[in-house]
Write a protein that binds this DNA or RNA. Structure first.
Length: 215
DNA sequence: CTCCCGATAT
DNA sequence: ATATCAGGAG
């Protein structure tokens, strides 16, 4: 099939690779446990703020046993500034209990097991797989979702659809990269509110350029 | 679809 | 002052 848009995926990979050469989480972690805590705290919160909070937290919170033992009240106080602190503290403690009871206190490295942990959804499960265990994963967060729609990779604003489109159009070895690139680009250039289209390296291949770009 | 919530941009 | 950010649970 001779078609220009059949190359949009590889074009995105090539161009964004140059812009975001280092594929690494901005979250600072030194163990699967620390990433688990950080990824839960990172919901609606900058990675910088998470790192600020975990710097002190990880001095005394070393594993799932510690997390299971700490009082809800002191945990809430410690993570307060990340927002949603009541939900997050509850998720962290319930998740820790679940991991101790079902996985012997070790964070599992299979998607099907991760997704069973209370407080861990698809996005967090894939983040753990990709960043901690270097397994293939497609992280579809709000940025990836938004860019997939703008770039007409997906017609629907649905994480599962976006995931399937990427899975079937990108080589598996590039899945994680691809979603990482869209995420980075969404944070910096193709922002939700005022996308910087004139600065965008995908400008000429973006179908939504010039049209109302509010989705 | 709503609720959770503090921080930051506007 | 207020809109917006954003993943997961119910």
């Amino acid at each position: 099939m001779i078609s220009n848009d059949s190359n949009i995926y590889s074009e995105i990979l090539i161009r964004l690779q140059k812009l975001y050469p280092e594929i690494k989480s901005k979250l600072i972690f030194n163990s699967p446990f620390e990433f688990y805590v950080s990824v839960i705290l990172s919901a609606q919160c900058t990675d910088e703020k998470v790192n600020f909070v975990t710097k002190d937290l990880f001095q005394y919170l070393k594993n799932f046993d510690d997390l299971n033992s700490i009082s809800l009240d002191s945990l809430e106080k410690a993570i307060h500034s990340t927002g949603f602190y009541h939900n997050k503290a509850k998720s962290l403690k319930e998740g820790a209990k679940f991991i101790l009871e079902n996985f012997g206190g070790n964070l599992p490295n299979e998607f099907d097991n991760l997704i069973k942990i209370p407080g861990i959804g698809r996005k967090s499960a894939y983040a753990i797989l990709g960043y901690v265990f270097n397994k293939s994963a497609i992280i579809v967060d709000t940025h990836v979702k938004r860019l997939a729609v703008r770039l007409s990779i997906s017609k629907k604003d649905d994480p599962l659809i976006v995931e399937k489109e990427i899975a079937s159009n990108v080589e598996e070895k590039d899945w994680f990269k691809f979603s990482y690139f869209l995420n980075q680009h969404g944070r910096t250039i193709c922002t939700a509110k005022k996308p910087k289209c004139p600065e965008c390296v995908l400008y000429d291949i973006c179908p939504k350029v010039g049209i109302s770009i509010n989705k």
